[in-house]
C-alpha cells in the first residue's frame, strides 16, 4: 500500500534521505525509529508530497504521489505530532471540514459516530478545538482517518507528549485501523509503543534505514539494546 522505490532527498548537497526501498502492506504497522534528524519526518513528508523527492518514487496504493498528488491523498490520512485544527471551530466542525475536503458527505450522526469511535466523548465534540488537550486533538485526527476510510496512515511522532493512558488508547485505535486493513507508517521515539503496536520496526540513522525487524521476533529488551547499538557507532 505504501511503497518507496530508491526514494531519496537532499537539500543543497546534504542528503537527508539516502535511497530508501520500503513496502508496507495493508494491515501492517511500520514503526520508524531513530534520532532527531535521522530522516524519519523527511520520509513521511515525501509520501505526503510536501517536499519533492530528489530521486526515486513514493507510491500510495500504486499511485505515484508526485504524478497523482490529489488522487494519492484520497487514500491517506496524516497525523502529525500535533494535530493542528482550526481553533475557532468545534471538533465536529473540523472533522466535517476535513472529510468534506476528501469528498465525503456525512450526516452529523455519522460524524459523531466517527468521533466516538476515535474515543472522543460526545460532550467534547461540540466544544471549540481551542480548549482541547493534545490527546483530544489526536483523536480528531484519528476520526478523520476513520471517516475518510484511509487505506494508508502517515504518523509523525503522534504519541510524544501524550500521557500513558492517552498513549495506550491511541495505540489501540491504531491497531483497530490496521485490523481493518490500513497500512500504517509511524515515526516514533517510543520504543515500547513501537514494540507493542508495530508489526515491523525500522531504525534510521543519518538518512539511511539501517535495520528492519519484525516485532514478533523481538523482546522489549532486545529492541532497546539493538537501537542503542545502532546509535553508538
Amino acid at each position: 500500500m505504501l511503497e518507496a522505490n530508491a526514494l531519496s532527498k537532499s537539500y543543497n548537497g546534504t542528503t537527508a534521505l539516502h535511497p530508501l526501498d520500503l513496502r508496507i502492506e495493508p494491515g501492517e504497522i511500520f514503526c520508524l525509529l531513530g534520532a532527531n534528524g535521522a530522516g524519519k519526518t523527511t520520509t513521511i513528508n515525501l509520501f505526503l508530497n510536501f517536499i519533492p523527492p530528489s530521486s526515486g518514487t513514493a507510491k500510495i496504493g500504486g499511485l505515484d504521489v508526485v504524478q497523482q498528488p490529489l488522487e494519492s491523498k484520497r487514500l491517506l490520512a496524516y497525523i502529525p505530532e500535533q494535530v493542528m485544527l482550526y481553533k475557532n471551530l468545534t471538533g465536529i466542525e473540523n472533522l466535517e471540514y476535513f472529510t468534506s475536503l476528501a469528498g465525503g458527505r456525512h450526516s452529523k450522526a455519522e460524524l459523531m459516530g466517527f468521533l466516538e469511535e476515535a474515543g472522543l466523548a460526545r460532550t467534547e465534540a461540540d466544544k471549540r478545538v481551542g480548549a482541547y488537550s493534545k490527546g483530544m486533538r489526536q483523536k480528531v485526527g484519528i476520526a478523520i482517518a476513520i471517516a475518510k476510510k484511509a487505506r494508508a496512515l502517515l504518523l509523525d511522532e503522534p504519541t510524544s507528549g501524550l500521557d500513558p493512558k492517552a498513549s495506550n488508547e491511541f495505540s489501540e485505535l491504531l491497531k483497530k485501523l490496521s485490523g481493518s486493513g490500513a497500512a500504517i507508517l509511524m515515526a516514533t521515539h517510543d520504543l515500547f509503543r513501537a514494540k507493542e503496536t508495530g508489526t515491523r520496526v525500522g531504525i534510521m540513522k543519518h538518512g539511511h534505514l539501517v535495520a528492519r525487524y519484525s516485532t514478533s521476533e523481538l523482546g522489549h529488551a532486545d529492541l532497546e539494546r539493538i537501537y542503542l547499538e545502532h546509535m553508538h557507532d
Binding site: L48, E71, K73, A77, Q82, F98, L101, A102
Partner: peptide
C-alpha cells in the same frame, strides 16, 4: 504557522 496547512494538504486538495 498554526499547523493546519499540513493537515489540509494531506487531504486531496492542492
Amino acid at each position: 504557522e498554526s499547523g493546519t496547512l499540513a493537515l489540509t494538504l494531506s487531504q486531496p486538495v492542492s
